[in-house]
Design a binder for these strands. Structure first.
Lengths: 189, 189
DNA sequence: GAGATATTAGGACGGATGTCCGAATTAATT
DNA sequence: AATTAATTCGGACATCCGTCCTAATATCTC
């Protein structure tokens, strides 16, 4: 009756558990229970804990690439596009903080595990490239930009969002900090 | 012969273990062995794992507040001070990456554990306040700044360093990404 | 020096975790 | 309908973990 659904339900349960409690605080038994499935099914479908986590990470990566690509297709000028990107990120932090927590958590995991390192490294690479190409490439930017390569600026923008985001998450009343995200646009003024 | 030294050796060992392998991959037995001490000594001096980790976090916080305060006391203009701060951070990532990894790791821990949350939240608070007061307060900044509160800009600067730093750490050949840190100064051009 | 206190040492405990295995059930194929 | 393959289930396994307890040793006080 379940068929292929079973593995998808496990994947969704893993996603939910990890984004709620953190990868270090989640056991395979937690995930099995959340999925309404017997423990051994996780190994039947994903082989190991690492295999399951890998799939969750890939799922997360797809979401980020897709959603940010959408956000970056809005607007015309660099300033406009940056506004759309910032607003997307503010909305993400407010209405779907689990997705950001997942990114932060797995990025931390990737610091110590070479298996996950390349996955996350590639994601940051792709995201910064998207920012570079869609925001910083075509339009004629201010003279300030001539001192820094578009690649470096894109990395910094991505880092500013990420690093400001964690401060929002950390502070339960972080709504005020959300305004700090707008400050990224200072480079386009 | 050891006396008070014993607890300090445990603390140093914990610091070393966590900054090398990550808090999730370190057991009290690892720390005891690294310190050359019997397991039960950890509970004798620190009561529990949480108690020990708390002290390690406080030690880390002291280092950051002290070192960044020093970096921010250099230079005169906002642009100069920002350069000193960036160079301090680049030096940290290059020569003492373990300290940054520790910050990232514990910040992730603070997302899930309310016990550690306030410690890290306060650290980010203090650091952004230092940046605000020492860089953004006195001097007459460009007109761009009137659109954003100094508090928000400080948060964003801190976030940009933090978020760019993790990208450097993630990439084993991250020396190129180090240049992205310079791009933060684009807001002072 | 004797007694009290603080520290060190070693081991045991209950519980949790990832993994694996064999049987039962279901689905697919002929 | 019979045989084979795929899936589901329940439980066992070895191991590791944080914590706790008791005895031995060192340190300090008078």
């Amino acid at each position: 009756m379940e068929g292929k659904n079973q593995s998808q339900r496990i994947l969704n349960a893993a996603y939910k558990c990890i984004s709620t409690k953190g990868y270090a605080n989640v056991s395979l038994r937690d995930i099995a229970e959340e999925a309404g499935v017997v423990l051994s099914q996780l190994h039947y479908y994903f082989g190991s804990k690492e295999g399951l986590f890998t799939e969750v990470i890939k799922m997360m990566i797809d979401k980020y690439l897709k959603e940010i690509n959408e956000a970056l297709s809005m607007g015309e000028t660099a300033k406009d596009k940056m506004l759309y990107l910032v607003n997307f990120f503010k909305d993400l932090l407010k209405n779907n903080p689990g997705l950001f927590k997942l990114l932060y958590d797995f990025t931390g995991l990737a610091m110590w595990s070479s298996s996950f390192n390349s996955l996350l490294k590639d994601l940051f690479n792709d995201l910064s490239k998207m920012i570079e190409e869609k925001i910083l490439s075509n339009s004629a930017l201010g003279e300030n930009f001539r001192n820094y390569s578009p690649r470096a600026v894109a990395r910094m923008i991505l880092g500013a969002m990420f690093g400001t985001g964690i401060q929002v998450i950390l502070d339960s009343n972080g709504n005020e900090i959300l305004d700090a995200l707008n400050a990224i646009q200072i480079i386009f003024e």
